[in-house]
Amino acid sequence: MWKYLHRLSSLKYCYEWSGKWVPWLLGVTAVLMLVGLYWGLLVAPTDYQQGESYRIMYIHVPSAWMSMFVYAVMAGAGFVALVWKTKLSEIIVSECAVIGAMFTALALITGMLWGKPTWGTYWLWDARLTSELILLFLYFGIIAIHSVIEEPRTAGRVASILAIIGIINIPIIHYSVTWWSSLHQPNMQLVSKTPSVHPSMLYPLLVMAVAFQMYFVSLLFIRMRNEILYRERLTKWVKKALAGH
């Protein structure tokens, strides 16, 4: 079992098996994404309370879920990187930071575009928007490490520590922001972003959520493979693997 895991984490082996997975993952992502888009935009009924703008939910909610899920993956990989010092997990930490920041930014942008027709303003210091913004800052910090620390292995370990500190702090930050916003908007009745959903509205959301999940894995694999190639560019196996080109 350990031997197998060890082999799995060797960069050469990982490059080989992830290469086989990428086309399938991309195919599944594309199909699910198209089904989800069609279903969410054209088939799902109009929400009686929010009207048509609720359709933004089908991309906003999966982005927001992914922004947190990717952070959890990153912190998990960071833990593995610190304990077993595997190069692969360090690569996953740094690639997750970039992908997670993208999902977080998308969740914020779509949240703002949803807010304008619903609340009448692009930005409210709403608890969820605010903690999402701070999450984006946490991602930016981890991305910035790689521009300051040039040695990739040191940068990887520093990023891992930060990812773990972040995952301990995210609940505290989220709790404090929620409490703070309830303090400052005591009489404000906000329309919930995820209305108690009817199945006909829920299924497209689930399809989109899985599509985003698959997209994340595909992009992670592609970026991971690039980084492996680049880091191992001086080794024999890379030269051999590329000889076919």
Binding site: G141, A144, S176, V177
Partner: peptide, 23 residues
Amino acid sequence: ALTSGFRGGGILLGLLVLPLYVP
């Protein structure tokens, strides 16, 4: 501790630490 061993760590420090100061 994470940044002071590196050049340019000063600005990075703010980026890393300020979000954690929010609570």
